[in-house]
Design a protein around this nucleic acid. Structure first.
Lengths: 121, 121, 121, 121
DNA sequence: GTGGTCTAGACCACG
DNA sequence: GTGGTCTAGACCACG
């Protein structure tokens, strides 16, 4: 479970953490039942406050990716693959809607966008 | 020069304004030499603070889209089309880099992304 | 907008606040568009930490009851009555399911429960 | 004496155990004089900590449902049926008071509540 | 040892 | 002045 924080990013730290773990679960790299490391450990390793880590964990909980078991820690939920895929598609779809609105506003044609992506991706 | 503010958007107002004017210049809808209306006028019309409008203007200035002439107002720079296009490409490219990083993180394949865009755009 | 905190309750303070405001919105006592008092004010009045109040506000936000407008404050969302009612029914239904499970476990018959409620409510 | 623990419930384990045994005594399924199994046995069978079981036993003791006999174990009190019923009524009454307060807060009318229960119970 | 709640207090973005 | 983020640190419930 890798987490890398960017000091220069404009995203809040807790959200960077949330998105990275979220992505790893969605990509299937963190299996169901996996115990996330204790928030205090993560905080120490990343050199940030416990509360910041907790905020990321809370977001993961709210999205249904993990569950907290008092006294034991936080565990990746065992969701049916269908549910994980639906969450993934929702994350992608919502982001894409915003992105396309931006490109549309700048007058980027469909073909130009497709060409750019073919070149860059 | 149309500006529409969304109260519900999570983008700050000054950025909404900045992006919209920016897009209109890039699309060639606002011609070089065009005098932006006084910030107080814009603020009154949109029902927002003068400070907010000023921040958007400053952003446009920093990006080289407009120039402030003391006592006279702010004017759209008369840039060679090549320069405008370069700015446009830079805006698009920087945004695209972030977007593609996000999709990559979620394990979206190139083909899946292209398909999604063909469907949605 | 009345908030009363019980020191003796086993419910966390932020949840007490959340539930009370939630109830007032659901009962229609706080109208759409209403500006909640600033979290710092509420904190001072109740003699608790700003963060505790913020947590209650966050919960209200997450449930779609209020929206935060940066620099201006938090406002009660104008939801169609149908939506408010649906939220209300959900709150009631979920609570009732738990309650009935408890009574069932203690061997309370339907009639006994109905009688008790007629007497007490 | 059946005990079923839910990992997903938000109730602490010791309370789940307490409530289930409590209910079985109140319903008359566990007779007076019955010897509860040793806490170590229960802990092993349920795969939980001894401390957790002990906490449930203590709760039962405090409520007067069982008595601990040093060196021999814990036994269900032989209470006159009248006393058991009084305890039962107290459990139900206290819970009901909280529940009704909640429904009242959400503006549920007596009739609406009765209707809901008739439908669900 | 684990997460949950709460506090006091700081700095920042937005307006 | 408003909420948003972050910190250090405390105490508690659960196990």
């Amino acid at each position: 479970m890798d987490i890398a924080i960017s000091e220069t990013s404009d995203k809040p730290i807790y959200q960077q953490i949330y998105e990275q773990i979220c992505a790893q679960i969605v990509r299937g790299e963190i299996p169901a039942g996996f115990a996330l490391p204790p928030i205090r450990t993560v905080a120490k390793e990343l050199g940030i406050s416990v509360i910041t880590v907790k905020k990321a964990w809370e977001e993961l909980d709210r999205m249904g990716f993990i569950r907290s078991v008092t006294g034991k820690g936080c565990f990746v939920q065992s969701l049916p693959k269908k549910d994980v895929d639906r969450k993934r598609d929702k994350l992608i779809g919502e982001r894409l809607d915003k992105d396309l609105a931006y490109y549309r506003e700048l007058g980027v044609s469909r073909q130009e966008l497709l060409d750019l992506i073919e070149k860059k991706y």
